[in-house]
């Protein structure tokens, strides 16, 4: 069972790292989700893997599962869930504002002005920024 869990964590992490390094936001979100899954299983395994034992000390059972990693995983799941939701909304916002879904935003949208030409162009259209508001 340890071997299986270790392989699962490894595959999840490798896929997560691969996807996180992609150039578009959607694979990056998926990659971060996979990384979060990997770390959850990893945290769980760090309390040592046991089968069929309760998480509270019970003399009749002859053993117990470490409850602390389970609490940690629960916290980590909640945080990862919230963060993923936030990231998806942010990715959608950047898709609509930047006109593309590239993480580095290097690909300029058709109407976008490069940084070093911005000042001169803006002085000709003083009200442009206000309308973006």
């Amino acid at each position: 069972m340890e071997l299986l869990i270790a392989i699962v964590i490894g595959v999840l992490t490798a896929s997560g790292v691969f996807l996180t390094l992609r150039a578009r936001t959607f694979p990056v979100v998926l990659g971060l989700t996979l990384l979060a899954y990997a770390v959850n299983v990893f945290l769980f395994a760090m309390g040592r893997l046991t089968i069929g034992l309760p998480a509270v000390i019970n003399p009749a059972q002859g053993g117990y599962t470490d409850p602390l990693p389970q609490a940690l995983v629960l916290t980590a799941i909640v945080i990862a869930f919230g963060m993923t939701a936030f990231l998806i909304v942010l990715a959608l916002k950047s898709r609509s504002e930047l006109g593309n879904d590239h993480v580095d935003g290097l690909h300029l949208a058709p109407d976008e002005v490069p940084y070093d030409k911005k000042a001169t162009v803006k002085s000709q259209q003083p009200n442009k920024e206000a309308s973006h508001g």
Binding site: T20, T25, V28, L32, L35, A36, A38, V39, F42, L43, A45, M46, G47, R48, L68, P69, L72, A76, I79, M83, F86, L87, L90, A91, K93, S94, E97, L98, V103, D104, G105, E112, H132
Partner: peptide, 30 residues
């Protein structure tokens, strides 16, 4: 626009950081 672009990168790198933090904490606890 620029703020959203910089913000997206800021969020992604910190989410990766959080994941690594959990790996480190898990290994130390183990």
């Amino acid at each position: 626009r620029l703020r959203t672009k910089a913000g997206l990168q800021y969020v992604v790198i910190n989410l990766i950081g959080s994941t690594l933090f959990l790996f480190a904490v898990g290994a130390l606890y183990g």
